[in-house]
Amino acid sequence: MHTRGKQGRFDRYLVTVEALIGIGVVTAILGSSYGPAPTVTFVFASVALAFTAFVLFKMVVSLRDPSLDVSGRFRDEERDRLEEEKRLLLQGIKEIEADAAIGKVDAHDYAHLRGTAERRALAIIHHLRALDERWMNEAKRQASRVVPSSTAAPSPRASAGTESAAAPSTRHALASAPPTSASVIEVRAESTSSAEPSAFASSVAGGRAAPAVLFDDRPITCKINQATKNDLICDGCQASSPLDARFCIGCGRPLRSPSDESKPDALEDR
């Protein structure tokens, strides 16, 4: 697949180069008769017309392409909006930190502004997490539809005799999954035989040995999720703060170790 992609790209480059050589030859022939300026203008106009014809063709063809209706649904606009707002809020927090560090904001205002932004950012992170779960459930539902019908009717031998053998392997698959396994789509065989994952995987992977994990497309919020599970505890007031916090939410003391402080990005604005 990868090789074919490379080959396709090479073919496109080849066609482009050939087209450019062709245009150059035509330009040279016309230029010798009509002069350079009219010829160059004429060639540019012709290239623009060729582009127009191609685009008009695509414009009409796209009307009859139902796959475009489907692909459009996979984009989660709500998620984009929240990610953008979160980005701006985190950027704002960094700016407030920088302003506080250079004495532009007093302590009270700093706490207020930072607290407000953090609360909002946390709310957004929670919302994003909920969206992720919803997306995952939908993806699982879609994946389960793809499972061949043969898996829905397991062989009597498998259902009768290998259930006890299947259970350990399933447990093993689940135990070896990363901690944020909510984001990982797995072939779960809790109520079916051990043969089912293989059958499903075979149908997907073309008969090769089936991995327990189909794909691991972990959303970014899982990292945040993981981070927020491991809060930092303030030495001063014992309050719990997120892992990426620099100052304690409770008393404002610095939380980071010197090694972490070697990579500050508080003044980053994007």
Binding site: F42, A45, L56, G72
Partner: peptide
């Protein structure tokens, strides 16, 4: 969405048409 995608190609086509028209006028000048 396919109609919206078609509309997007319409925007590109407009760019192509106007580029061609602009070059035609330049050609008339030169």
């Amino acid at each position: 969405p396919r109609l919206v995608v078609s509309a997007e190609f319409g925007v590109y086509a407009l760019f192509g048409l106007l580029t061609s028209a602009t070059f035609v006028l330049v050609y008339l000048f030169v």
